[in-house]
């Protein structure tokens, strides 16, 4: 299976994402630079974390208007799975591929720690490797992870089961409304999440709880991937 990682100036989690995808798929992902206008034919596109364009204007705002994101939007419209992590989530929201916005953390601090996530929908194409309601560990590292959406949007997310992950056990690190940590689009093929599953996929990371997202999206089993 083939994957692609979007590269933008100022991202810093791209190498971690490339390493994770290489470990899980056995193949090095294609990389797509910000100025490119087409994506290779792949099974998963990932927009990784970091601080694209220095978070100028708003986190993800400039990146969301780059040529490569138009190509990502076209791929998403065709049903290609797209995963945005951290800054990638911010970029997908700014690009209009996901609803809502990610604002400055309520406590105004950069948070870099492990949180617990509840898998609130284990039936999306990104979460079938988990049990419904399973609590998983996942690291976070961000300054602007405070998810916000208006009431109508929140109701739509809730009613259509589009909230995939919530911060659990009082570990909400950023004030995100309704403890939202990750959501999918209406079609279910675009997932954005603030936590970093790519940093918890090998036993040497201290756990493998993050693997399930990639394994679900790519349809590989734990045994094959191990």
């Amino acid at each position: 299976m083939k994957t692609a990682v979007v590269l933008l100036p100022g991202l810093n989690r791209d190498r971690d994402m490339i390493a994770a995808l290489t470990t899980i798929t056995g193949k090095v992902p294609a990389t797509v630079w910000q100025t490119e206008t087409a994506l290779p034919d792949v099974d998963l596109v990932v927009v990784p974390g970091g601080f694209s364009f220095g978070d100028y204007l708003r986190a993800g705002a400039i990146a969301a208007r780059s040529p490569v994101m138009r190509a990502v939007a076209e791929a998403a419209a065709k049903g290609v799975p797209v995963l945005g992590v951290c800054n990638g989530f911010q970029i997908l929201c700014e690009a209009g591929l996901l609803p809502g916005a990610l604002m400055r953390n309520a406590a105004l601090r950069f948070v870099c720690r492990e949180v617990k996530l509840e898998v609130t929908n284990a039936r999306t194409r990104f979460s079938t490797a988990y049990e419904q309601g399973q609590i998983i560990r996942c690291p976070v590292a961000h300054h602007d992870g405070n998810y916000f959406a208006d009431e109508a949007t929140l109701k739509a997310l809730q009613d259509h089961d589009r909230i995939v992950f919530r911060y659990a056990d009082g570990t909400n690190p950023n004030g995100a409304i309704n403890d939202i940590a990750g959501i999918v689009n209406a079609a279910g093929n675009v997932l954005g999440m603030m936590p970093h599953p790519e940093n918890l996929i090998e036993p040497d990371h201290g756990g493998t709880d993050g693997r399930g997202i990639f394994e679900s999206a790519l349809g590989v089993s734990q045994s094959v991937a191990a």
């Binding site: 705002a61 208007r65 916000f148």
Partner: peptide, 9 residues
């Protein structure tokens, strides 16, 4: 509409 403001917030 397209860049300077995020009209969600």
């Amino acid at each position: 509409e397209q860049l300077l403001a995020n009209t969600v917030i």
